[in-house]
Amino acid sequence: MAQTTSVSTAPDREEERDGEERTTVDGHSETLTTTESGLEVTLYDSIRSISASRWNDVVERSTCGSVFHRYEWLEAVETGLGQTPRHLVVEKDGNLIGLLPNFVVDIEKTPFRRLSSSYPGFGGPLATTDVAESLSLLTETVPDLCSGRTVVHQIRGLDTKYLRYNNVLQSEGYEPYRRECRFVLDLTGGYDEVFDGMSGTRRRGIERGKDGDYEIVEEELTQPTLERFHRVYEQVMDRVDGDAYPLSFFERLLDMRERLLLLTIRIDGEYAGGFLELLDEQRSSIHGFFAAVPEEYFGDHASELLYDYVIRWGIDNGYDTYDFGSTNANFENGVFRFKEGFGGRIVPILVWERGCSPLWNVLKAGRSLYWPHRYD
């Protein structure tokens, strides 16, 4: 028979892989389900209440694990963005074997919220053993996490590996929702093959940019270099009417600096912006997640030069793919056309949604009113 209990996690110390100790913090956890087969599902209200090495061990051993599932990314979202965690874990005989990271986030232009796995970034359930039962337990538990204004659970899968779970998710009431895509560039054939696969416009942009006086530097990740990047990033996001993440989020990302690459470009001796890339060693992929190039440097082809540099860097460092990040699946969109010019393969962003309230059907029926605004 299933049992439900509520406990408070005690502070704990563990030895990290890099030799540093990390102390977990006081937090609340609630055991939601215990099965006859010995599996236990627990809800945590903070990632910091869980052992980092135990959590990351599941990520690293899972087929669908990524940098966005890692403890450090989730901690930055929690503490840097102030989002409310509702993380689920599955244990068997005291061993962590499955997890589903979640945050409660607002639904734009509505008074409602969604439970998202995960945002920003990508999430979804992971399991290392007893996969079918673990996945079933995680998805069956989700409705217990939704109440009040939280009307839907959304899973954002990183790539097509998550299609293995499609039938299970749909049997649990999840519906596919496709509106965004990514361009993923294959780096394994070498630079010449990548360059030849670009559009003539992108190739000319790189070549013309190289005729100018420019320098690209791999910056050390320090508070001053991060603050400089963030100032320009805020200006760029304001120009495109986007929501900029606060500096506090970027500061928390310093805890995973070994998985970050900060590039800056100078043109005619002046700072002309940069890229902050996420390095996903588990997927052998570089994610172009944050870009900060002011409009006044577009004519100098600063963006093309930065992309050219990071593509070469990825090839030199043995990465298989470069991911240009999310864009609307609309061929008339300027960002879509710009990224498409680099020759990457178009990949749909896999999203599944499951309503947890009758209000969700009302909201979903009117969702088209928000297009072309960003809903996800």
Rank of each mutant, 00 (worst) to 15 (best):
C64N: 15
T321E: 12
H373D: 15
D243C: 00
R54V: 10
D45S: 15
S118G: 03
V351I: 15
L88D: 01
V89Q: 04
P294Y: 13
T9L: 09
L279C: 03
F122L: 13
Y214E: 05
V293I: 15
V236C: 11
L253S: 00
A76I: 00
G190Y: 06
C64G: 06
L99K: 02
A302F: 05
F290V: 00
G318V: 13
Y71M: 09
V7Y: 12
P224K: 07
T129Q: 10
D268L: 08
A365F: 13
V77Q: 05
G123K: 02
R259N: 15
T79I: 14
D308M: 04
I155T: 01
R182I: 12
L137P: 08
W352C: 08
S8T: 04
P294V: 02
P372L: 10
L279M: 11
E353C: 02
E193V: 14
D280L: 07
S147G: 01
R178L: 05
L96N: 08
G157E: 00
G27T: 15
S147M: 02
G344I: 14
F68G: 07
T42P: 08
L185M: 03
R113E: 05
Y271C: 09
G334K: 13
L39P: 09
F342V: 06
Q83K: 06
G65T: 02
T327Y: 05
L158V: 04
N328M: 12
K339S: 03
Q3Y: 13
D300Y: 09
Y322A: 08
Y214R: 00
L137Y: 07
S49F: 00
G94N: 04
R312H: 15
G19I: 02
T84P: 00
E15V: 12
R354E: 07
F338V: 03
P176K: 10
L226F: 03
G274N: 13
L32R: 14
S53Q: 10
L369C: 03
M256K: 01
G123R: 01
S46C: 06
R259C: 02
H301A: 15
W371P: 00
E258T: 09
R337G: 08
K161G: 08
E36I: 06
R17S: 14
G200W: 05
L100C: 00
G190R: 07
E234M: 12
D376T: 05
L305N: 01
R337D: 11
E175D: 14
I286E: 06
S37Y: 08
R354K: 15
V310D: 11
